[in-house]
């Protein structure tokens, strides 16, 4: 029967897809052996931004939590790294662990007030939170106020190690979102995004589901913040807690395709390559990035991946549930 034929070719396709994914991961992991220093440098940025974008996608694309305040977590990661390594002479592993603890506690604390807000008020609420944290750090003598801290320990990290760390973060972020969506929670997320009222009367606990996503995304963004600043190596409150981070996350997700797993991958690559290109056009970067965002939103409102999926039905990571039998 054709039905069976379709099924078997679908399985074949799934086989090919996972083969391609595994091959791509191996090729990327071996990049330091054959890639140029520039390729590795760009790779660090692409995978760090992928992790950020994917987590923002989990928030905005799947949980309906449009946050413009998650730069607070990047800053927290950055300052955890700075304080642990500079003020206490700790290592990077310790920084990661402590940043996770702080991120979980902080997101729990702020979730009580800001989860009372919804829609655009939630968005503004998150922004206000991050601006308040920025103000706090600017006036905090322990972290040297506005003058910033040199993360001297990060100066001599070999680039390859940063690359592998970023690659791992990028892959884990994609896998994390994929597994969340395939899990029971993914089902409640999809139902919640589709029709919150109907989901609620099916027993989906909206608050709990959103809170879990918020915790996961905040924590992961904090970890990425630590890694980003192992690369940047110099932290100042303004840029660390700056809205620029949120803008880049929004850009990556919107360009790539919100609510798709592939979207942030495409978005992060485009964003980083554009930024590399724009170093030679001082003062133009915001104008050019902004115009590209506007054009993409007009031409393909669901982003590049949304358009591809709409036209060809292609998905690299399908989170659709197949009928069992």
């Amino acid at each position: 029967m054709t039905h069976k034929h379709v099924l078997s070719s679908a399985y074949k396709l799934i086989g090919i897809k996972s083969g391609v994914i595994v091959a791509a991961i191996i090729a990327l992991a071996l990049l330091p052996l054959y890639g140029s220093a520039h390729a590795i440098n760009v790779g660090i940025l692409v995978f760090s931004y992928l992790a950020l974008g994917q987590m923002w996608n989990l928030l905005a694309g799947y949980s309906g939590l449009v946050s413009l305040g998650h730069q607070a977590f990047i800053g927290i990661g950055a300052y955890t790294l700075a304080v642990v390594t500079v003020s206490y002479g700790g290592g990077f592993f310790m920084s990661f662990l402590i940043s996770i603890v702080i991120a979980v506690l902080f997101s729990l604390v702020i979730s009580f007030p800001i989860f009372k807000l919804s829609g655009v008020y939630f968005t503004i609420g998150t922004w206000i939170v991050s601006e308040s944290v920025l103000m706090f750090f600017r006036n905090w003598r322990f972290v040297n106020f506005d003058a910033g801290m040199n993360i001297t320990r990060a100066f001599r990290i070999p680039q390859e190690n940063l690359y592998l760390g970023a690659l791992a973060l990028g892959i884990v972020s994609v896998a994390l979102v994929y597994f969340i969506l395939r899990s029971k929670m993914g089902l409640s997320l999809m139902a919640m995004r589709d029709n919150p009222a109907a989901a609620e009367v099916r027993g989906v606990h909206l608050y709990k589901t959103k809170l879990i996503c918020f915790l996961i995304a905040s924590t992961f963004i904090t970890i990425t913040g630590v890694l980003l600043y192992m690369n940047i190596a110099f932290v100042m409150p303004g840029p660390a807690f700056g809205i620029d981070w949120a803008v880049s996350m929004v850009f990556i997700v919107v360009i790539g395709g919100i609510g798709t797993i592939e979207g942030p991958i495409i978005g992060a690559a485009i964003y980083v390559f554009l930024r590399q290109f724009l170093f030679n056009f001082p003062g133009m970067s915001l104008i050019i990035l902004g115009s590209i965002a506007v054009i993409v939103i007009l031409v393909a409102p669901k982003g590049i991946m949304g358009a591809i999926h709409g036209k060809f039905g292609f998905e690299l990571f399908s989170v659709r549930r197949k009928m069992e039998d």
């Binding site: 089902l187 999809m190 139902a191 995004r193 589709d194 029709n195 009222a197 109907a198 989901a199 659709r320 549930r321 009928m323």
Partner: peptide, 10 residues
């Protein structure tokens, strides 16, 4: 009110 973007099965 159904979940529009999800399949009947889902």
């Amino acid at each position: 009110s159904v979940f529009e973007d999800m399949t009947v099965y889902e």
